[in-house]
Design a protein around this nucleic acid. Structure first.
Length: 299
DNA sequence: AGTTGTCAAGCTAGT
DNA sequence: ACTAGCTTGACAACT
């Protein structure tokens, strides 16, 4: 099992998701930001390897405005060297990589312009991973999208639009069960139609499910990953007390995490910790995980 | 230097 | 009608 945290490192003093306002867009500004973000991404990955974190989610803000019409810079060519260097480091150290485009990506939307922007945004994510020369185990995770009062049609739209995406994009795209609209069961019905792997979000499953236990959910979603997709990825979080249902914990709840490890014993997956304090919780989780695994091995 | 309104984009549910 | 939340606050104008 590889363990990781998303997008931001709070300790090393640089960010790989630095952006700026559209109103102050210029080519120079863009290039300066991307250069900074790539530099920092490399630093974060080095830090992660030193500390035992072999799973990382790259921020969607790595290249600000990449899919916006204002951006006419050929950033992929311009930064090819840096992308390759990072990609080589990732492969050399066997780091697992994911990306998670934000909520504006809705490929089953009813409006054509929303779909068009969504596809462009997905292509941007795909280009980043392609430029790093990563194989199809590097994934782009999205939700199925909106429901619009008719889930069946909404799923059919997803299936239809998926089929028209590029080959590279299709090989990287995975769907994640969400906490309000598309449960694991819904995702499985999409999977049955097009074979897309399901990234199991354990916390979302707790919020929205059809009676499957955590272990059953994990096992079932795990079967949707082919060899070329790599080890199944999953998202983990827990409820922040006092916040509304679905909001992520500020820091890792140790008791709940231990319980999670016991319930999922023997299953293999790469674990993304969606916890607000990032690597601080990842350190705690790694310590618990190692103890847990040693305990198992010593039997 | 510190504070604060605002930021490309969508959808859902709660108020 | 408006807002919080989503994977994540950070930018940038103003005091």
């Amino acid at each position: 099992m590889k363990l990781g945290y998303p997008c931001i490192n709070r300790g090393i003093g640089c960010t790989a998701n630095s952006t700026f306002r559209l109103a102050s867009y210029s080519e120079e500004r863009l290039i300066q930001k991307v250069e900074n973000n790539l530099d920092c991404l490399f630093q974060i990955l080095q830090y992660n390897v030193q500390n035992g974190f072999y799973f990382f989610r790259i921020s969607s803000d790595l290249v600000p405005f990449a899919s916006h019409p204002v951006c006419t810079v050929d950033w992929a060519s311009h930064f090819r060297g840096q992308f390759r260097k990072i990609g080589e480091f990732i492969q050399e150290h066997n780091i697992r990589i994911s990306m998670h485009p934000d909520q504006f990506v809705v490929i089953n939307a009813q409006k054509d312009d929303v779909v068009e922007r969504s596809v462009k945004e997905l292509e941007y994510h795909c280009t980043v991973l392609d430029e790093m020369a990563l194989n199809s185990t590097a994934k782009i995770q999205i939700h199925v999208g909106g429901v619009y009062g008719d889930k069946r049609s909404a799923i059919n739209r997803f299936v239809e639009r998926y089929s028209s995406l590029s080959k590279s994009l299709k090989s990287r795209l995975v769907i994640e069960n969400d906490d309000r609209s598309y449960s694991l069961k819904d995702c499985l019905s999409v999977h049955q139609k097009i074979g897309i792997p399901i990234l199991f979000d354990a916390f979302h499953h707790q919020c929205l499910n059809n009676g499957e236990t955590l272990r059953q959910g994990l096992q079932h979603s795990g079967t949707t990953w082919k060899k070329s997709d790599g080890i199944p990825m999953i998202d983990y979080s827990s409820q922040q007390r006092g916040q509304r249902s679905g909001s992520h914990a500020k820091t890792l709840n140790i008791a709940l995490f231990k319980k999670f490890l016991l319930e999922t014993k023997g299953l293999d997956f790469d674990l993304m910790l969606e916890i607000k304090d990032k690597e601080a919780s990842a350190f705690k989780a790694l310590k618990i995980l190692r103890k847990h695994q040693n305990g198992k091995e010593s039997m």
